[in-house]
Amino acid sequence: MTVLPLSRPVRRPGRVDRLAMLGGALIVLVALSAVLAPWLAPYEENTPDPLHSLDPPSGAHWFGTDLAGRDVLTQILYGGRTSLTIVVAVLTVSSVIGVTLGVVAGYAGGPVRDVIMRITDVFLAFPALLLSLALAVVLGPSVTTAIVAIAATWWPWYARLAASVAASVATRPYVDAARCLGVPAPLVVLRHVLPNSLTPVLVQVSLDAGGVILTAAALSYLGLGAREPVAEWGLMVQQGQTYFTTNWWVVTFPGLAILVTAFAFNLLGEGLRAALDPRRVIK
């Protein structure tokens, strides 16, 4: 018996996308600078110096100082700890809850989908800040409160996205084929529906990183999230916005930290999309 050779050459995903690598490298850099803040920061955290209030960038203070005379670079390095913690925690919690419920709803359909989607609608019907306020009243203002409050209003979007994608995936022939092979429903979901539904959710998660930082900033501004003396990028932007026209460095540098981090997450998301889709060949 002659075995026929494979006719089509194998196409493998090539090198990891360069921009995605840049994104990953930037996230590692930001994370490292946050972790190593006590060693990297030129000054102690939260050391007010009224004599140097709103000093512009100089050799002594590379990123200038804020109203209290604190070194902006130091605050940014320490603030990265809080901001990254909030981003990672919110996106992890909300995506795990949202994707789990969404995929189950999308695959099961019928009454299961109806129940899960109506719960989702209830959460979406509440204005995010109102829900956050209510949670903050119960839990008390803190970074943890900010994380819980943002995650509580964030997961329904992932649930809806995952449900619509999973409902579409559930009708694909390979899902029918799996059922025809006797694969139990939980395994069909885990091995076929979930992996083929993840790509748009992961891209959305990566795009949301910047939004989470800014929402955390809004909560801090309302006194519901991070509060003085905790350093947090969003809080720094909120506090510095009054001085933007006269003392631009107070708001610009933390704003740039948010921008670079959000951009890095976006690049990484694009890379993840490529890695999870074996049909895409990266040149």
Binding site: P173, Y174, A177, A178, C180, L276, D277
Partner: peptide, 18 residues
């Protein structure tokens, strides 16, 4: 699967792409 197998119309579509 074990005793009764189904061969589907669109062979490529019947295999999970990931």
């Amino acid at each position: 699967g074990a005793r009764v197998a189904l061969v589907m119309q669109s062979p490529e579509a019947a295999l999970s792409p990931t």
